[in-house]
Structures are given as structure tokens and as C-alpha cells.
Design a protein around this nucleic acid. Sequence first.
DNA 1: CTGTACTGC
DNA 2: GCAGTACAG
Length: 273
Amino acid sequence: MSKVSMRKFLYPLLLVLVTIGLLYVEKYVDHKQNEPNLIEGEKPKFDTKTELLPTSTTGSIIHHNYYSLSYAEDHEQAEWVAYELNKEQLVNNDFKRPYFEIDLAVPTGAAHWRNYKKSGYDRGHLCPAADREFSREAYEETFLTSNISPQLNAFNAGIWNRLEQKVRYWAKSYDGVYVITGGVLENDLEQIGTEGVSVPREFYKILYDVRNGEHTAIAFLFPHQASNEGLYTFVTSIDHIERRTGIDFFSTLPDTIENELEKSSDLKKWSLK
DNA sequence: CTGTACTGC
DNA sequence: GCAGTACAG
């Protein structure tokens, strides 16, 4: 091909291809921006970014788009993960499970998923993937290693799974709930992998809601083992979980409300059937 | 739903 | 590493 025909045909062809490429990129970017951040036009039921966050014993609070966490570097996992679960967010999108990725927002460096490989423990979500299926971005954000903890499969797929399903039922029934989840992190825990990811002996979950201006909460603490018992068996007080973890929950609420919430779980307001 | 493992590229 | 598939609780 001569230099003249090169200019006449190849350059215009290149120009067309580049233009198509740019149009495609623009369309793709627009599409991403149109995906809902929470739900479009929907006011959050709770002030998720500030008011309801627990304290951090590590000083390493990280805000993602669809949940927040406090990372404990000594244990290579979060001491808590917190998020609001809206009724409108409960949709089934059959997204393919991606690989877990290191959470680059953790300044000290989050663990690699290989620590869990052949450890005998699941990569157990703290914020469940099924709670963030309203967009691909939200779903994939749950597959960060800052959002998992080593869990026995018999526990994760068993009573822990049943509680997660109950949380989705509550979110649907009560038009949204606020969820705080984590393992109890202590000094002498078993560790797995080259980075030493701690294996908690207990896991907790706290649910909070406001209905008709009334604050209510329920707290669960499970031994890290399989169980066929009812969920009510593991109901405890927020005060108890605070003593076990050193974390202060709902400290930004007025003291009278905080004290009332924390001294006991209000079983009557959380249907466990 | 919660996950793992294996095959083949 | 990724896709597809199979399988277990």
C-alpha cells in the first residue's frame, strides 16, 4: 500500500474507529453514573454516615459507597461493618460472584483472600452479598477482603445464614433497618494464612430501627459453631456486646435513648417467627 | 441462600 | 485469573 492510499483510507478508518471507541466509553460511563447510589429519590431512613456509626477501637473507619467499616489490622478484618438495609434494596439480581479483592481503602493494607484458601474456613461476608443486589457496584463492593471473616461453613451456611435471611425479612416488614455486624476480636485467637487473619470465637449482629418515633434494637451473639437452636436463644443486650468487644454502639444518640436501647433487646418489636 | 472445588483456557 | 459447571449445607 502506497503512502498516498494510506492517508486516503487508513487514517479516516482509524478516525472512525477512535470515534466509535470514545462514544462507547461515554455511553459506558453514563451507564455507570445512572446506577443508583442508594435508591434514586429515596431519603435514607437513618443517617448512615455519621449518627449511627459505632466507635472504632482502631481509629481506622472506612466509608464505602454502600457500607462503612472499622478495620482491625491486628486481626486483618473489620471489627464492625455497618449499613442501612432499605426495603427497596431487596431485589434479586443474579449477579455472578466475583473474586474477592484487597480493599485498597484500608491504609494499613487489607488481607489477601489467599489467607482463607484451604484454611478450613469460609470467606464469610459481614455485609451479605444478598443485601446489596440492587446494583452491580453495590454487590461487588461486598467482595472486598475488609468485609469478610473466617467462618466455619456449618456456621455460615447454618444459623448465621438464617439470621441474615431474618434481617432481610425485617427490612421488608419494617421498611428498612440499620445493621451492625462483626466478629469478637481478641488477643489469643487462632490465625490463618501468611498474614494471620484471626478466627473469631463469637460473632455478633445488632439491628436498630425507629418506628413511629420509637427507637428499638435487638442484639445477637453467637458462638462460632453450628447450631440448630432458635435465633432467640442467642439474643443478648448491646451492653453485653460492648463489654465483649470494647466498641461503643449508638453513642451519638441521646443518653436516655442509648441507655434504654442497650440494657436489653426489645424482643416484642422484632418478630422472630 | 451460604459457600467450595474442579476443568479448561 | 476467569468462565462454566457441579456439588454441599
